[in-house]
């Protein structure tokens, strides 16, 4: 049994590793250097990193209290909220983007666009698309992190005189730290790779709304395989790099 199960684990390496390696078939050092030096590509990199960081930070800001509430308290509509967390995964990102687009075409959305902020075809639109896509999963990860913390720690903190806020900050949060760091990184990585909803809301405007995934799509559309491969490798480097750093941090946290 052990061998066959390990073979299944190696299938992960075969599938994803194989796909990554296959990209190198079209890799060209000259094109890669050119891509890195290109102001358009650099704009996409900066835009992707900035918007993903803002979207992940916003998602975490709301996910921390929401995830804690879903983990610890009983309240009305809790089950419905729990189900809705998977809503962005159930509908495709493209459909999610279309839903947001439809929202901004109803009276309330139009009023927001005119009086608060115009999200369509803008930087804010990219952040909104990424935020809406990752928020549910972010809450799910944070909830799981708090679920792993035994509530008896909070009970003890309370009996020792800690207010609910002190108990949250001094006990629940530090104990859920590893899970929350994992949630942040995965949320950020998912935001970085967001494509469908961004395409719908922000469009594909170079030097304005062209994130890395959008840039990959646009270059592929133009049959510019070598730049596409360069962009894919940059995206993989940032995504996997972030996951690697997170793993190291978590490991250090566990050993410390």
């Amino acid at each position: 049994m052990k061998k066959s199960f390990i073979v299944a684990a190696f299938f992960v390496l075969l599938l994803y590793g194989g796909l990554i390696v296959s990209v190198f078939y079209f890799f060209d050092t000259g094109s890669f250097k050119e891509a890195i030096a290109s102001s358009r590509v650099m704009f996409s990199v900066k835009l992707s990193l900035t918007t993903a960081t803002i979207a992940a930070a916003l998602a975490l800001f709301f996910a921390l209290p929401a995830g804690y509430a879903l983990s610890r308290y009983n309240f009305k509509l809790k089950e419905l909220i729990n189900t809705l967390l998977e809503f962005p995964m159930v509908v495709s990102p493209a459909a999610l983007g279309a839903i947001i687009l439809i929202f901004f075409n109803n009276p309330l959305g139009e009023w927001i666009s005119s009086n608060v902020y115009g999200f369509i075809f803008s930087f804010g639109g990219i952040v909104l698309a990424q935020f809406v896509t990752v928020f549910g999963v972010s809450v799910r990860f944070v909830k799981a992190a708090f679920d792993d913390v035994d509530s008896s720690f909070e009970t003890i903190a309370k009996t020792l005189g800690a207010s609910p806020w002190q108990s949250f900050c001094k006990v629940s949060l530090p104990l859920a730290k590893n899970g929350i760091v994992g949630a942040v990184v995965l949320t950020w990585a998912k935001a970085l790779g967001e494509f469908g909803a961004t395409l719908m809301i922000a469009g594909t405007m170079a030097f304005k709304t062209e994130t890395l995934p959008i840039a990959i799509f646009m270059h592929l559309q133009m049959a510019d395989i070598k730049t596409t491969v360069s962009l894919i490798l940059i995206l993989i480097a940032f995504g996997l790099g972030a996951l690697f750093v997170a793993r190291q941090l978590l490991q250090r946290g566990l050993n410390g």
Partner: peptide, 20 residues
């Protein structure tokens, strides 16, 4: 009275020593 204001000491079965 809220639990944190009672001033009672508690030792649970699992002891719940803060691991961090």
């Amino acid at each position: 009275m809220a639990a944190q204001k009672r001033g009672f000491g508690y030792v649970p079965q699992n002891l719940a020593l803060f691991p961090h």
